[in-house]
Design a protein around this nucleic acid. Sequence first.
DNA 1: ACAAAAGTGTTGAGAGTACACCCATGC
DNA 2: GCATGGGTGTACTCTCAACACTTTTGT
Lengths: 224, 224
Amino acid sequence: MPGDEYPRPLVTVDVVIFTLHEEALQVLLVRRKNPPYAGMWAIPGGFIEIDEPLETTALRELEEETGVCDVHLEQLYTFGDPGRDRRGRVITVAYLALLPADRAAIRPGDDAAEARWWPMNALPPLAFDHDRILACARERLRSKLEYPATLAALLPEPFTLNQLRATYETILGEKLERIRFRRLMIAARVLREVGIEHRTVRGRPAKLYRFREDAEAKARRILL
Amino acid sequence: MPGDEYPRPLVTVDVVIFTLHEEALQVLLVRRKNPPYAGMWAIPGGFIEIDEPLETTALRELEEETGVCDVHLEQLYTFGDPGRDRRGRVITVAYLALLPADRAAIRPGDDAAEARWWPMNALPPLAFDHDRILACARERLRSKLEYPATLAALLPEPFTLNQLRATYETILGEKLERIRFRRLMIAARVLREVGIEHRTVRGRPAKLYRFREDAEAKARRILL
DNA sequence: ACAAAAGTGTTGAGAGTACACCCATGC
DNA sequence: GCATGGGTGTACTCTCAACACTTTTGT
């Protein structure tokens, strides 16, 4: 066959999956069982099968290692520097996924010894160049804030405007002005009012919203 | 070695390189010498060497096949569907590059029988899934219009505002209002005045501009 | 009644558009 | 001079930030 004279690297697919929990951005990591880096934490992922689309590999490995399934994937970046894996030339196609807090319960699978959420601002030492991959994922997540509807995958619906604002604040790592945020979101026409909150603490109950199904609109000026 | 039990696909790196010529967006393609798809047109690219970073492969193949060198590359997307290449499982990491018109002279290399620029609106039939890759590249290029400074790589500097507008119009495929465009570009503060055009035809000579070196600023509202 | 949280009205500054207009050149 | 393309002045519109304000709840 024609390709036989060319070197064949190994190819893995890794998945950075984020959720929000306790006012912090969290990422799902697995503890590696096998060398290299046995015992260290890493992004879930694994080698491709020969007849398997890349996204299928991503979903399969994610479920095998963490029990998480049924998420939307977005291709992030491909990391292929020689030397990034001691096992030889390994090229990794990284994907990004988001999980709403109410689905963030995880069950470690058999491929990995252990799986748990880690806050992005207090990560353990990571295997391979996974710190670089996480930095890349964080950037991508930030850029998604311009399109509020993409955060649907990160919020339990319905939500209040203040929950949405807290989400933005967590991802941006800075405070946003309450009234300004409200007005910009309303002006972006991406939300649909679906009722009113049931208050358990003092204060006026907030309106509840969902994202409009057709909402691709961009919220200008949210980032600042 | 640990990875030996896993399937090893072939990996190629392909480069979509655009230029502007005669009011049209052009892409550099090579005619394939070898099967599969021998004689058909394809994006320049080739198989990785085992110790070579992906970008190095991209630059090497580009130069070998077309003579183009010294360009800035941006990773575009990784295409890995099984069945996209008859030779077996081939995963392709696609890159995007831009070339100013005054450097668009090309010299076909020995890897490919022939290389030439094709206008994006009159492409020949393409090998593999390269039509998909081109569609992806075109989208990415469009999205770059929000950051005018990235077009520096596509324009001979210095340039007039009308040349810049023509660039936008070509990429967008629609006319932009002259005065509106001028004012938005000036307001974006990404340009530096560097002199005045030498007129050969009738009309007032235009001012010449370069992009400011520090200009990452975003020009809002250009796209419409 | 009061504190707390949610939501609204209003004003003023600034950005963007559309129009008419002025400027510099070749013929 | 005048046609042609480049550049500016101006007035009107629209958006958005900042402020004070009202509404709705739990205690």
